[in-house]
Structure formats: C-alpha cells, structure tokens
C-alpha cells in the first residue's frame, strides 16, 4: 500500500529524533553506568575499573541511608496526601455545583508555576523562627489562637521531610484532581442512575461502582507521583538549600558530582535513582500500551 519512497521518507523523518534519543537517553545512561564503575574523582576523567565499589560504598554509607529514609517519608506523605486530596476535590467538583470551572482552575494553578517559586514562598510560610521573630503560618496560628498548631516545619527532626511534602501536595494535588475528574466524567451516567433505581445510596454507589472503576486512575496517579517523589530536588533546594537532615539522593548526587567532583560516586547515585524509577515506570508503560491496543 505504501510506496517505497514514502517508507524511506518516513524513516528519514523520524531518524533525527531517534538518533538524538539513542544518544542522549540510552547512550548517556550507558556512559553513566561506565562512570559509576570507575574511580573517577577530580576534574580529569579516570575510567580505571572499580567494579561495584561505588555501589557497595553507598549501601553502607550513613548519608545514603538518611536519603532513603527521607525519600520514603516524602513519598508516603506526598503520594497519599495528593491522592486523597485530589480524589475528594474531584468528587466535590463532580456534583454539578455552580462555579465548578472556577474552583477547578483554582486548584490547578500551582501546577503552572515552578518548584523554585513554590519553594521560595513556602520557605517563608514555614519559617520556624520563634518568639518575636515568629512569622508565616506559625504567626497566623498564634493570632488565630491555634497555638497547638505551631511547629518547626521542615526543621523538625526526622519528620521535616513531611513539611516539604506539604508544599509538594499544594503544588500537585490539582493534578490528581484532574486525573480523577477525567475518570469520573468517563463513567456513564446510566450506571449511577441504574444503581439509584436499585435503591443504592450515594456512599454505596461510590464504594461499589465508582471506586472500582477509578482503580486505573489511582494506579496512574500512584506511579506518576511516586516517580516524581523519587526525583524531588528543586523544591527542597528552594525551601531549605542543601542540608543533611533534608538530604535526598538527587541532592546527594549533585553535591558529590559537582561540588565534590567525585564523578564515579555521583554516577552510581544517578544510576540507583534510575533503577528505582524504572521499576515503577517500565511495567506502567507496558500496561498502558497493552490496554491501548485492546481498546
């Protein structure tokens, strides 16, 4: 059906992009893996073989353990918070109230701005200063006589990451709301009406019909938000800078590589990050493409 000329032309059209991705994604990943297996430390490249030394060093590195703990805290608060908040916002907006469009736009606008802007503002909102220097949320809580809410935010030991996650929820919950809203809109009205006629109440309809139908949306949200939280970087830098209690692999990688010039170790952190993201994303891509061909 296709002329040969067109077949060659189609390959010709797509090949610059394919070549670019082949080099910049797969070639560079391979190159990073090679760096991670070397002794490269300092400005001059050193590709002498080090085996898995850099990985083993990370596994027994207390700072890397802090990073893993921080990532786990951030991920759980951020993912659970965004999914719950996004779901309830979507359900409320799906009730056919007046002003729905206005609220929807409002809940989504943080998505349009950068983590850096969010971080710079939240850094002042979550100012942990006490006494006469008190400001931000703590000052607001005090003047509303809600003193029990006053806290140290991201400077809280161990749980400081949860405060960073709060800023991330502010930024990203509109996204889960949009995903759920699209999911709710794709559920045929007849289904709900049939259940109403059968005498099901609102809660039963949500629990037995709507929630199961939204399971694929929840899966998407889990994976997209989960992989984002593995990569979290800018937001922490903007709120707190580089400090050990709020360290994550992305910041450790950056400091090791560009401040410490320990390229081999930095590459190893980068590759570990890649592996953790790939574990989530590769099955997700396969699942999405498979359901697509079934439709």
């Amino acid at each position: 059906m296709f002329k040969d000329k067109d077949r060659y032309l189609s390959i010709l059209l797509i090949s610059p992009s394919i070549l670019a991705l082949l080099i910049f994604v797969y070639g560079f990943i391979g190159w990073s893996v090679r760096v991670s297996l070397s002794n490269w430390k300092g400005l001059n490249p050193d590709y002498s073989w080090a085996g898995l030394k850099n990985y083993l060093a990370l596994f027994s590195d207390p700072r890397f353990h802090v990073d893993v703990r921080n990532t786990l805290i951030f991920t759980s608060v951020f993912v659970v918070g965004s999914i719950l908040l996004g779901f309830f916002l979507a359900v409320m907006l799906d009730q056919g109230l007046k002003g729905e469009g206005f609220f929807r736009s409002l809940f989504l606008f943080p998505m349009a701005i950068s983590y850096i802007v969010t971080g710079v503002v939240w850094r002042w909102l979550m100012n942990p200063a006490e006494g006469s220097r008190m400001s931000g949320f703590n000052l607001l809580f005090t003047s509303l006589h809600l003193d029990f809410l006053v806290n140290k935010w991201h400077t809280t030991p161990i749980w400081g990451m949860a405060a960073i996650a709060l800023a991330a929820i502010w930024q990203m919950s509109g996204y889960t709301m949009a995903l759920y809203l699209a999911g709710l809109r794709s559920i045929p009205h007849e289904l709900r009406e049939a259940a109403q006629i059968d005498g099901a109440n609102e809660i039963q309809i949500y629990r037995n019909i709507i929630l199961p139908l939204l399971a694929p949306v929840t899966l998407s949200a889990l994976i997209i938000l989960g992989h984002m939280s593995l990569k979290v970087f800018d937001l922490i830098i903007a709120i707190a800078g580089k400090q050990l209690p709020l360290d994550v692999p992305a910041i450790y990688m950056w400091q090791t590589t560009f401040d410490g010039l320990f390229y081999a170790r930095g590459a190893a952190i980068g590759i570990l990050l890649l592996i953790s993201v790939a574990v989530l994303i590769i099955p997700y891509i396969r699942y999405t493409l498979k359901t697509e061909t079934q439709q």
């Binding site: 910049f24 994604v25 070639g27 560079f28 990943i29 190159w31 990073s32 760096v35 992989h227 593995l230 990569k231 692999p249 992305a250 990688m253 950056w254 590589t257 390229y263 930095g266 590459a267 952190i269 980068g270 590759i271 990050l273 890649l274 993201v277 994303i281």
Partner: peptide
C-alpha cells in the same frame, strides 16, 4: 520519565 541525574554527567 528518567531522572536526569542519571544522564547529567555525560550530558
């Protein structure tokens, strides 16, 4: 989806 930390050194 890749974390750019995994390609930034070669880049």
């Amino acid at each position: 989806f890749i974390p750019y930390q995994s390609i930034i050194i070669p880049l």
